[in-house]
Each structure stands twice: as structure tokens, then as C-alpha cells.
Amino acid sequence: MTSSTKASLQVMEAKYRRSRRLNVVLGVIAAFLGVVVAAQSLPGQSPTSASTPSTSASSERSEEATDDPVFVRRDADDPMAIGDIDAPVVLTQWTDLRCPYCAVFSRDTLPTLIKEYVDTGKVRIEFHDVAFFGEQSEDAAVAAGAAAKQGKFMEFVTAVYDAAPERGHPDLPREKLIAFAKKAGVPDIDRYAADLDDPKLRAAGQESTRSAQQLGVNSVPFFVAGTTALSGAQPLGAFREFLDTALAQAE
């Protein structure tokens, strides 16, 4: 890491320490007011108890998972999730592959969270792609979906974020997306390239963006765990506190 990068991260950390409390409050208001609106279309369900339509996997969920918000999937076959399906806490992340702060989180914080919380069975992480930075963001969401179809979502996203520039939004034309798929170990590149033109994948990416906005998620990275939310690529300590609080609530 260059000295300029370290300096930039130090400035960012100081900024987020000052604004962390405000960000959490605003995030909770935005996300859960949106959940209230979404839950109004589900008679007899509260915002935090409403669940997604039943699937063969979700029907086998443990009783402890019944209070999950509507956007929590807990699908055993979910290619865009990591961790135990019955983990006490699900950390939901909304991310854009052209978001510089999403890249910072992926490189500097996520590996530690996986080691300390996911690998120990405490937390499951579920990802939602959004396209907030133009057409290439939408193309990248399609590309991530194509990688997910071959079981390489995390590897693809990690490859993109590891190569992201220190500043600004990365340029992600089709040829770069295919190159990242190769780097991520996607087994069938011809199939992958064909899937980049799949209208169903594009529609799914667009729907994910709309759903995020309806929930009040208008910037990324954005996180929800339990009944609290966190916004931005905050320092590792902030995420530890965030997840420890959610785990204590889950108990």
C-alpha cells in the first residue's frame, strides 16, 4: 500500500469515525422505513417478520431465522452468499462493482470479517448487486450474475475489486469483464460470454437496483444486520462493533 493510499484511508477513517453515529441512525431510518412500505403489501406480517416467498431451502429454515427482514434470503443454494444458512445473524450488503468504497471494504475489511465471523459460523453474508454508476455498473452486475451461475460470484467480485483504481470508478468494458471471469476461474468462458447477453440476468440486476432504492438504499456500500444498518467503508472496528451488537440482539 502506497503512502498516499495510507494517508487517504486515514483521512477516510477519521471522517467516518465522526459521522458513524449519524450514518447508523440515517441508515436505519432509510432502510427500515422502506421495509415498512414493502411489508404493507403483506397482510398480517410485521416489517421484521415478513419473509420472502417460500422455497424448498427456505422452508427448512430454523425457527431462529423467522424474524429476518424481507430482503434476507437464507437460501442454501444461493451463489451470492457465504456462510452458514442458520447463522444467528445475516449481514446483507448492497454493492456496486464500480464503487470505489465497495472496493476498499472488499480489500481491507471483508477478509477479516470472513475469518472472524463467517468461518466461525456467527454470520452469513448475502450480497445484492446494484447499478448506481451508469451503464457499466449494470453491465458489471450482469457479469457478476453470469459468474454466479457457474459458482464463482465471490471470486469474480474479489478479482474486480482487487484491481480497482485507488480513486474514481473503474472502466469495465466487456473485454475486461471476461478477463476478470478468467482470473476468477469461471470454468466455461464461452458460456459466460454468452450469458453477458442474457436478458434475464439484466432484468434481475435492474430489479435488484429498484428493490434497493425502494428500501431507501441510495448509496453503497450499505449494510444491514439484524435491526441496525451501517453505511460506507468504515474502519474494521466499526464493523466488529456493528456485528457484535447484532449477535447480542440475536441471542
Rank of each mutant, 00 (worst) to 15 (best):
D171F: 15
L196A: 10
A229L: 01
G232N: 09
G226P: 03
R191V: 13
A193F: 08
T228H: 10
T228S: 13
V186C: 04
P187L: 10
Q213E: 13
A204K: 14
Q234Y: 04
A212P: 11
D197R: 11
E207G: 10
K200T: 14
G237M: 09
R210Y: 03
P199H: 05
G216S: 08
G205N: 02
L215N: 02
Y192D: 10
A181W: 01
S208K: 01
A184T: 02
S219T: 14
A212S: 14
Q214I: 01
A229T: 11
Q206N: 06
Q206L: 12
T227L: 07
E241H: 13
L196Y: 10
V224P: 00
L172P: 09
F239W: 05
A203Y: 00
L172G: 10
K176M: 05
V217K: 08
D171Y: 15
Y192S: 09
A203T: 03
Q206W: 00
L230S: 02
G205T: 01
R202I: 02
P199E: 06
F223C: 01
R174M: 07
K182D: 04
Y192A: 12
S211I: 09
P173A: 09
T209N: 05
S231A: 12
V217A: 07
A184R: 02
V186S: 03
V224N: 00
T209L: 10
P173L: 11
A233G: 13
F222R: 00
V220Q: 11
S219C: 04
S231P: 00
F180N: 06
L215I: 04
D198E: 03
L230E: 02
I178S: 08
P199N: 03
G205S: 11
R240V: 14
L177P: 01
A212I: 05
L236W: 07
A184N: 01
D171N: 15
P221M: 02
E241K: 15
T227K: 15
D188G: 08
Q206G: 07
D171H: 15
D198W: 05
S211V: 13
L177R: 12
A233W: 10
E175M: 01
P221F: 07
L215S: 06
R174S: 13
A225C: 09
D190S: 15
Y192L: 13
E207C: 00
A194L: 08
G237A: 14
A229M: 02
I189A: 08
F223P: 07
G185K: 03
K176D: 11
G232R: 11
S231I: 14
F180I: 00
S231D: 04
F223M: 02
N218T: 14
P173I: 06
V186F: 03
V186M: 04
R240I: 12
P199C: 06
I178P: 05
A204H: 09
L201G: 04
F223E: 04
P199I: 04
A229C: 07
E207Y: 05
A229V: 07
R202Q: 12
Q234H: 03
L196D: 09
A238I: 12
A203R: 02
A181D: 01
Q206Y: 00
R174L: 10
K200Y: 03
Q213R: 13
Q234R: 14
F180V: 01
E175A: 11
F239T: 02
S231W: 04
A193Y: 05
